[in-house]
């Protein structure tokens, strides 16, 4: 069972755990990514997230389906990312997985976040205490050239 979304609303870890719940599942893993107050030695006040909504949902779905193929079709899988300007401490992404046993949940949950970071069309612009802002360099999606 897959739930993916992008939203401007505050992320709710309990909603993720509610989705990742089943009487047959003895394990649930939750990952929360949050805005950090420092990056590369610069003091960060906020991060603005830009993303491609349709493609993001499509790729989130692909990543979740891959996790289920690898660790079990009975997994409950959750992947939601924020959009807009977030202050330090706010959650930018939540991934969660439940499964019969803990090993599958741990591995699948990590797979979701690691794949999301290198495949999902999401960009972040950091805002610093000195008033400057900068788009963060990332992973190229270009396949050839």
């Amino acid at each position: 069972m897959i739930h993916v979304d992008i939203t401007e609303a505050v992320l709710d870890p309990l909603a993720a755990l509610s989705h990742c719940s089943s009487d047959a599942h003895g394990a649930a893993d939750l990952f929360v990514g949050r805005v950090r107050n420092i990056n590369d030695g610069r003091n960060v006040t906020a991060v603005s997230y830009d993303l491609h909504p349709q493609l993001c949902r499509s790729i989130f779905g692909e990543i979740c389906a891959e996790a289920m193929e690898q660790w079990g079709q009975d997994l409950h899988v959750y992947l939601v990312h924020r959009l807009g300007r977030l202050a330090v401490g706010e959650a930018s992404v939540i991934t969660a997985v439940s499964s019969g046993h803990r090993d599958d949940s741990f591995k699948a949950c990590r797979y979701l976040i690691e794949q999301m970071k290198v495949r999902a069309p999401i960009w972040k612009q950091e805002h610093y205490t000195d008033g400057d802002s900068e788009w963060i360099k990332g992973h190229a999606l270009r396949n050839s050239g």
């Binding site: 930018s92 992404v93 970071k117 290198v118 495949r119 999902a120 069309p121 999401i122 972040k124 992973h139």
Partner: peptide, 10 residues
């Protein structure tokens, strides 16, 4: 179509 610079979600 869209042009996608290198990505960095999370």
């Amino acid at each position: 179509v869209s042009i996608l610079p290198p990505v960095c979600g999370g």
